[in-house]
Simulated scan of single mutants.
Amino acid sequence: MTEIAKIIRQARDQARLTSLDYARLLLDDFMELHGDRQFRDDGAVIGGLGLLGGMPVTVVGIQKGKSLQDNLKRNFGQPHPEGYRKALRLMQQAEKFCRPILTLINTAGAYPGIGAEERGQGEAIARNLMEMSDLKVPIIALIIGEGGSGGALALAVADRVWMLENAIYAVLSPEGFASILWKDASRAMEAAKLMKITSYELLEMGVIDKVISEKGSQTEVVEGLKEELIASFAELQSRSREQLVAERYERFRKY
């Protein structure tokens, strides 16, 4: 198995920690909140409040399941429009109460079904991109597994974009890329090499800001991540609201 194939396999591993796992491990007194106040609660997106080193933080994440039944409940981590609207509702609430935001991303992409399109999937993603760009609180986005397409970007307009070492982040899946370019999904690993989807490749290109090492025990990885988050949020909170928004704008304009 090639190195890129190993990374993709690890990024998609059902045994990886989920967004809900990270929320509960990183935050004290985590309380999950539900619903978009328009249609329903989307199990593919989780969100809530908790304390990160004593600091109130809002967490929003895309949730995959750990079993077939759980994945059916979570729609295999593919959000509907109401999931993105729930995420935006919680992020706007965070801005209202001056809470930093942590987003956790693990999705192959937004759900492309007929119902999702009828309820405005494209509009929901576009609105998140627009609104997140102007939120006046610190935002850190962390890709914990797969970061696929606009479904991932809808939670990644942040001041800092980080990736776990064995995560991937791309405009679409390698299988989708190969199918479009060569009409042959079996060439996915060849496509993955061309796409440069691994954490260190994206760090070198400046697409992300930090790679979080996954060496050591699960507890060590989480504790190290927690320390980095506390330090980075403290740094970002030292900026004025106007400076935060201006620097976020410039970060994405440079592409």
Rank of each mutant, 00 (worst) to 15 (best):
L194G: 12
R187Y: 05
V45Q: 01
P56T: 09
L102G: 03
P174M: 05
A94F: 03
G224H: 13
A234S: 13
I105K: 03
L20G: 00
S173I: 06
A44R: 04
A158Y: 02
P100N: 01
V57S: 00
G216E: 08
R241T: 12
E117K: 15
L236P: 04
I212F: 12
K86M: 15
G61C: 04
R253E: 09
T198F: 02
L88P: 00
F30I: 08
M1H: 12
E3Y: 11
I125Y: 01
L88T: 06
I139K: 08
A126I: 10
R253F: 08
D70P: 02
R12Q: 08
M31Q: 13
D42L: 08
N75G: 02
V57L: 14
L244P: 03
G83F: 03
V157T: 09
P81Q: 08
D36N: 08
K254F: 10
S186D: 09
G50W: 07
V171T: 13
K193A: 15
E220L: 15
S240A: 09
K215W: 13
G83R: 02
Q14V: 15
M55H: 08
P81N: 02
R241P: 09
S67C: 01
S199V: 13
R74S: 14
D13V: 06
V221Y: 03
I180E: 09
G61S: 06
P174C: 09
P100E: 00
E201R: 06
L164Y: 04
T219N: 00
K6P: 05
K196A: 11
L49Q: 11
K64V: 15
G216I: 14
L68K: 10
I140P: 02
A108F: 06
Q243C: 06
G77H: 04
A141E: 04
C98Q: 12
P56D: 11
I208D: 07
R16D: 07
V137A: 02
R127L: 13
K6Q: 14
